[in-house]
């Protein structure tokens, strides 16, 4: 009785699903989905290789310093880095005094309270401070940016599909103009006033103007590679990988140690297991005779013996 009722319930669900399936397919064929501009013109992220890639990857300190310089000179005016503190920059190879100077000279000051009047005020940043936001709040940020909100960059390489490669592609992927084909096929996707066409951006049209436009836009200290657009984009991407995952090097080192330890432990535990089972397992094999077809065979053999006897 229980099984009969449950069977009916099952038939009910299956029936509704089959109806839904026919509706879905009929709808698909009678009314096929139109291709969208994003489907046809969106590009997958370019390939990007950084020193921090792979299980043994470690940061390239010099590159991170260059990337920080790019952030400071190009990005920081609009994009915050609110989860990173100035003191963290010591990981980039700056010493305590340099970090202090960087914090002290940072263009944006830290909001504080005037100790005597209680009014809001600002003060110079200290190493213990996190990077102050360029705007006091989202409304101010939108007001200053044509109603677009520049996202905080602390976690950006972990917060986007494609990660670092996507950021690098976006920075280098702006195109002056949409192709004639796109405009002809998808008039609605034409880049509106105040937006910029970038096929690596999921929506194709992006509010951020191209941030890195010319070779030499940032001047690197002697001994560094020439600041081409590509190099600048790569450096700032490497820096943003660090801001998103500052413990990456610790993680890779600890992971290697843990993996080696567990590998040895697995081997030793396996040998111990073999030893403990050695005597008792002598004739007990789960495979082989236990396999149903072997049992079936032995059954047949037994039956035949019975006939012969």
């Amino acid at each position: 009785m229980l099984r009969f009722i449950l069977g009916l319930v099952g038939l009910g669900f299956v029936g509704v699903l089959l109806i839904s399936f026919f509706v879905t397919t009929a709808d698909y064929f009678s009314n096929p989905p139109e291709p969208t501009a994003e489907e046809e013109f969106h590009h997958h992220a370019k390939e990007l290789h950084l020193a921090s890639d792979g299980p043994f990857g470690q940061f390239d300190e010099k590159q991170l310093q260059r990337g920080f310089q790019v952030y400071k000179e190009v990005c920081a005016a609009c994009h915050g880095l609110s989860l990173v503190a100035f003191r963290d920059l010591e990981a980039l190879g700056y010493n305590e005094a340099e970090v202090k100077a960087i914090a002290d000279q940072w263009a944006i000051q830290v909001p504080t309270t005037n100790e005597e009047t209680g009014e809001t005020a600002t003060r110079k940043a200290l190493p213990a401070d996190r990077f102050p936001s360029p705007y006091p709040n989202e409304i101010a940020a939108r007001a200053a940016n044509n109603n677009a909100f520049p996202p905080d960059l602390s976690l950006i390489t972990k917060a986007r599909h494609g990660g670092a490669a996507y950021i690098y592609s976006l920075l280098t992927g702006y195109e002056k103009q949409q192709s004639a084909e796109l405009v002809r096929k998808f008039p609605a996707a034409k880049t509106p006033q105040g937006l910029y066409y970038n096929p690596y951006f999921p929506n194709l049209n992006l509010a951020m103007p191209p941030p890195i436009t010319t070779n030499g836009q940032v001047t690197y200290a002697p001994g560094n590679p020439p600041p081409t657009v590509d190099q600048i984009a790569k450096d700032v991407t490497a820096f943003l990988v660090w801001t998103a995952e500052p413990k990456l090097e610790n993680r890779h080192r600890a992971g290697l140690a843990v993996a080696i330890f567990l590998l040895i432990a697995t081997i030793i535990a396996y040998l111990a297991y073999r030893n403990i089972w050695a005597t008792h397992k002598a004739k007990v094999r789960v495979t082989g005779p236990l396999e149903p077809q072997n049992i079936a065979k032995s059954q047949i053999a037994k039956d035949q013996e019975g006939v012969a006897g």
């Binding site: 330890f261 040895i264 432990a265 030793i268 111990a272 030893n275």
Partner: peptide, 20 residues
């Protein structure tokens, strides 16, 4: 003795792991 050695080694590894 070999069995003891392996068992002791396996248990020690487990112990080291837990302490670590």
């Amino acid at each position: 003795r070999r069995r003891d050695f392996l068992n002791v080694a396996a248990v020690s590894f487990a112990g080291i792991g837990v302490v670590a």
